[in-house]
């Protein structure tokens, strides 16, 4: 079994009375290129925002490189409003009972002996689940909430791009990438102000320049980022994300607004940088050609729920996916 880079467990995000992501669980393995697809409003970007710390999920746990980075359970007013599943999974109240319906079925069992036997088996399974939960997450069965801010997530090594491009649009292309280097520079405000970090500053500038040259953006380095054509802005956003030295790259609809040829180029480009920087890539995308051609695995969600998972061929053939995209034929 290959190593998990990202592991999402029972992720639920509820806004008021709307459950945007519901009990989503998925894994992204090291070196994989995984896509998350689904109709508009299925909750893809919300899931991304939970991973990157923009939103605090209502319930669920997210693991990055084997370490829990996000963990929450419904609390306060949300505990009463909660409409998702497994509300107690990440609290001290969790006893391993995962399936209340199975338990009810056991209770309905007529034969007393068989009922006891089933019950014992059920309890054993629950204990096993409890144990494994404890093994995976040392904080399991405490009410501890882990909710890092987005910058912390980026520091851990998850970089992202945005669906609607979010560049620092009145700054130069060079500065846009250079800013991403700020986080990992060894300096403090005094050394930076008094220019005692000269070597560090030079390294940042050289690395930025190298990255821009590699992305073919060096020509534009002094241009204002907002004045670049759309395609280049997309590329700059990816370059900027790479400058944070990530291990996992999250791309939110990188091919939005691109024509088929540009999309093809983008796919090749992503694969190239993935190889070069030994990245794992997790992407939301609507362009099926891109997804089917380049991705190793695909997750499909609809109405916040995972409906299908597998290789491009399997997903293409899956009835539920076709239903979700085209509507159910009665």
């Amino acid at each position: 079994m290959s190593e998990n880079v990202l592991r999402i467990e029972n992720l639920t995000m509820q806004f008021g009375g709307v459950v945007s992501v519901n009990g989503l669980s998925m894994e992204v393995n090291k070196g994989e290129f995984v896509a998350l697809i689904g109709p508009n409003g299925a909750g893809k970007t919300t899931a991304f925002n939970c991973v990157t710390g923009v939103y605090q999920p209502t319930n669920g746990r997210i693991e990055f490189m084997g370490e829990t980075i996000v963990r929450n359970h419904p609390q306060g007013r949300m505990a009463r409003q909660y409409m998702g599943e497994r509300a107690t999974l990440y609290t001290s109240a969790y006893r391993g009972e995962d399936d209340p319906e199975a338990l009810e079925a056991i209770e309905r069992e007529g034969d007393g002996e068989r009922r006891a036997q089933l019950r014992a088996q059920f309890d054993a399974e629950a204990r096993e689940r409890l144990e494994s939960a404890k093994r995976r997450d040392p904080d399991a069965l405490t009410n501890r909430v882990i909710a890092p801010t987005p910058d912390r997530i980026t520091q851990l090594g998850i970089a992202r791009t945005f669906q609607n491009i979010r560049l620092f649009s009145s700054l130069s292309v060079f500065d846009n990438v250079l800013i991403a280097k700020h986080m990992r520079a060894r300096q403090n405000v005094f050394s930076a102000t008094l220019r005692l970090n000269r070597r560090e500053e030079r390294r940042m500038r050289e690395e930025t320049m190298a990255l821009l040259e590699e992305q073919d953006l060096a020509r534009f380095k002094d241009e204002v980022a907002g004045s670049l054509p759309y395609g280049l802005q997309r590329r700059l956003e990816i370059a900027r994300a790479l400058a944070t030295e990530p291990r996992l790259l999250l791309l939110d609809e990188p091919a939005a607004g691109m024509n088929p040829q540009e999309t093809q180029e983008l796919g090749e480009f992503i694969v190239k940088i993935k190889e070069k920087y030994e990245l794992t890539v997790f992407m939301i995308e609507h362009h099926m050609d891109l997804v089917m051609q380049f991705c190793d695995r695909i997750y499909v969600i609809d109405f916040g729920k995972l409906i299908c998972e597998g290789s491009p061929e399997a997903v293409r053939a899956d009835r539920r996916v076709i239903d979700a995209y085209l509507g159910v034929v009665e």
Binding site: L167, F168, H182, M183, R184, R195
Partner: peptide
């Protein structure tokens, strides 16, 4: 000096777009 340093750039990034600045690892 401060504004032209790495920290100054981080400040400008926050001015431009808080969400993007945060995604770039700026606390």
């Amino acid at each position: 000096l401060l504004i032209n340093s790495s920290y100054g750039r981080a400040f400008k990034a926050i001015r431009e777009d808080e969400v993007a600045a945060e995604a770039m690892g700026i606390n």
